[in-house]
Amino acid sequence: MFYMILTLNTHFFHYQECESFQIKRCQRKMKIKAVMIDLSGTVHVGTNLLPGAKEAIVKLKSAKVPIKYVTNTSKESKTSLIRRLKSAGLHIDKDEVFTSLSAARNYIISQNIRPLLLLEKEALEDFEGIETESPNSVVVGLAPTQFHYEKMNEAFNLIKSGGSLVAINKSRYYKSEKGLSIGTGAFVSALEFSTDCKAYVVGKPEKNFFHLALKDFMNDLKPIEVLVAGDDIRDDVLGAQKAGLQGALIKTGKYQEGDEDRFGEPNYLFENLEEMADYVIDQFSDP
């Protein structure tokens, strides 16, 4: 292992390389005090945990590194998601998870809107108590059973009549047990195109999503002190970096070879979640 320190405009940058992984980018050296971890494609795919994911979480928790799971998953409620992950063997608590559904609910309440919810029934639990009679807004999540002509046309007409369009996320695609699958973004874009309006996005990669998740930590943390790890270079990593956090691209899930060069430079690049955990713990324990 070797370390090289460069000085540029009075800021310090670092480059680290070892046998198992590389941090290929130059970035400001800032100690990581907490980690936000994407779930789908980073920790699990479907009902299966990815290799090294469980070990990574155990290591981080044993080292007392604060963790928050941040996910754009909108196909099922937080309770359902946690139940599925526990069944797969991951020890996870409800207060450790911040979802785009949570962000959407917060937004709906803050704006006092009555949504037409284009969601799967498994996700509706997270919107209990929300008024949906005489809707004045369309809220779109990943809802394969809802993306048919009649329902999309209902949403179209509501928006054309003056209703707002809210996207829980605009993910392009995600990794499922059957391979890559189309995400919510295609259907949101269809409504944007046909109604000549722009959706308000509440999930990743929006800056506000990361800052809301940051508030969930008990510690008084600055954005730059938190590392976001995920398999989506644009929504997870570059979104986090634009929001002032550090970003680590994990080469699992939807990751495609060359993503780190094709779309933008991540602060860190790791083969899997366990390598990320080893790096964080190594510098977390430094004085």
Rank of each mutant, 00 (worst) to 15 (best):
I5V: 13
L8D: 15
F13R: 13
F13I: 12
H14P: 01
Q16E: 11
C18L: 12
R25A: 08
Q27S: 15
K29Y: 13
K29D: 12
I32A: 00
K33Q: 10
S40H: 12
H44C: 12
P51T: 01
G52F: 05
A53Y: 00
A53K: 05
E55Y: 08
E55H: 05
E55A: 09
A56R: 02
S62T: 13
A63D: 03
K64G: 01
T73N: 14
T73I: 13
T73D: 12
E76W: 06
K78W: 09
S80K: 14
R83M: 10
L85F: 08
L85D: 01
K86V: 06
G89C: 04
H91Y: 07
F98P: 00
S100D: 09
A103C: 06
Y107P: 04
S110F: 03
S110T: 12
S110M: 03
Q111N: 14
I113M: 09
I113F: 03
R114P: 02
R114V: 02
L119S: 05
E122P: 04
A123L: 10
E125I: 13
F127H: 02
E133K: 12
S137L: 13
V138Y: 06
V139W: 02
V140P: 03
V140S: 04
P144K: 10
T145N: 09
M152D: 06
L158H: 10
K160Q: 15
S161W: 10
S164K: 15
L165V: 07
L165G: 09
A167M: 11
N169H: 15
Y174P: 03
S176V: 11
E177N: 05
E177R: 06
K178T: 12
S181G: 00
G185P: 15
F187R: 00
C197M: 13
C197N: 15
Y200P: 02
V201S: 12
H211Q: 14
L212V: 04
D220R: 07
P223E: 11
P223S: 11
V226F: 00
D231H: 12
D232H: 10
I233H: 05
D235N: 14
D236Y: 04
G239R: 00
G239Y: 02
A240I: 01
Q241M: 15
L245N: 09
L249H: 01
K251G: 01
K254P: 04
Y255K: 02
Y255V: 00
Q256I: 13
D259W: 07
R262I: 08
P266G: 02
E271C: 06
N272Q: 02
L273S: 04
E274P: 01
E275W: 05
M276L: 14
A277S: 04
A277G: 01
D278G: 05
V280T: 00
S285E: 13
D286V: 09
P287M: 14
